[in-house]
Amino acid sequence: MIAAIALPRIMRIGGGALAETKGVLDSLGLSRPLIVTDPMMVKIGLAERLQGMLGSAAIFSDTVPEPDSDAVDRARAAVRGEDCDCIVALGGGSPIDTAKAVAVLAKQGGRMRDHKAPALNNGPALPVIAIPTTAGTGSEATRFTIVTDSETHEKMLCIGASFLPVAAIVDYELTLTCPARLTADTGVDALTHAIEAYVSRRANPFSDGFALNAVRRIAANLRRAYRDGADREAREAMMLGATEAGIAFSNASVALVHGMSRPIGAHFHVPHGLSNAMLLPVVTAYSVPAAERRYAECARAMGLIQEGRDDASATAALLDELRALNSDLAVPGPRAYGIDEAKWNGLLPLMAEQALASGSPANNPMVPDAEAITALYRQVWAEGGQAR
């Protein structure tokens, strides 16, 4: 199998890397950036700090936590109004995904739904320079973006080189003030990326190395970063692990957890990383029989079992650890989160259909049908979780 590998053209990784942003823009011949960010980055002064570094840049901060097509259209209008030649995305996955979507629409036109999977987008796009402020989505290094259709409430997966940032500025110091809940949710998101990339039917030797490195870093440091946000060593490891996981899944794809997670986010406004965490133990248990060796290698990378133990023991340890991690990070189940049971059950057929339509479940070791996905959603509800 020939693996098609795609990476940002330029990457700056390490504490203080934010200061390199202006030099990166200059090296690319770009001079009219729009900073796409969120209200929190404006409130804490980081957007203005970046604006000062760049000399001249407009700021668009009207993004929403789970990007929707209305927010994308507003940002596209800002790009046109400022005659921008590039977008600097500052924030978590939501501003970065918004920026990537705007970059494509600004050059290709149409509506966001015109670009959703299974469409493959390799056409022109405005250059995006991505600066993550959370250690989670890895969106700074991926050829994917996720946008909810504001009319249909479908959470759309959009794929292709058009969505790949031209540059990524990965500065772990930007995560030092992340609150514990955000640290937990984004951290489990990154862990899910790494595990799913490694067990994906599209995994390859290139993605495997990044996936296992990410698993090692995240498993060793997520609890530390959650308990002590000022732990610089843990924060640095988490930031690098999240980027490695992004590279891994961008080049191998995610699988069933993400396919099932997107409808939960779209219909119930659950943060993406949290909905992944709700699903990860149950979906992993379902999938293990089809890729026992691969899941066992994840357990070994996490240091969960002594060398020489068999794969069955390793996968059992992995499942125990995923449940323990959710407990330690106070991850609620759908009921504990406050989702209405009748609404949950009523939407299961549509959610299963939307999960399958995204294409991600087809990458899973155990490929489900709609009936299997519905059963898994019911199991996730039944197993519950901690209070929020």
Rank of each mutant, 00 (worst) to 15 (best):
M1T: 10
A3D: 10
L7R: 00
R12T: 03
I13V: 14
G15F: 11
L18C: 03
D26Q: 04
L30W: 11
P33Q: 06
V36M: 02
M40I: 09
V42Y: 11
A47E: 14
Q51T: 04
L54G: 06
S61K: 13
S61R: 06
T63W: 11
P67D: 06
D68G: 13
R80S: 10
R80L: 14
I87M: 10
V88R: 09
A89I: 05
L90R: 07
S94Y: 08
T98Y: 10
T98E: 04
K100L: 12
A106D: 13
Q108L: 13
G109L: 14
R113Y: 01
K116R: 15
K116D: 02
A117S: 15
A117H: 14
A119G: 03
G123P: 03
A125V: 04
I131Y: 02
P132F: 12
S139K: 13
F144L: 09
F144A: 06
T145F: 03
E151P: 00
L157P: 00
C158R: 12
C158G: 08
A167Q: 05
L174E: 07
T175V: 05
T175W: 03
T175Y: 05
C178Q: 12
T186C: 09
G187V: 05
V188A: 03
V188K: 01
L191I: 05
L191D: 00
L191T: 04
H193Q: 10
I195A: 04
V199Y: 07
V199M: 09
S200P: 10
P205R: 15
A211N: 04
L212G: 01
N213E: 15
A214W: 08
A214H: 11
R217V: 01
I218K: 13
R223V: 14
R223K: 13
R232N: 02
R232A: 12
T243Q: 05
A245H: 08
A255W: 01
P263W: 13
H267Y: 15
F268Y: 15
V282E: 14
V282C: 12
V283S: 03
V283N: 09
T284E: 07
V288T: 05
A291D: 08
R294F: 04
C298F: 02
C298Y: 08
G303C: 09
L304E: 12
D311W: 03
L318H: 00
D320Q: 13
A324P: 00
Y337V: 02
Y337A: 06
D340Q: 08
A342N: 03
L348R: 15
E353Q: 15
A357Y: 09
E383R: 14
R388M: 01
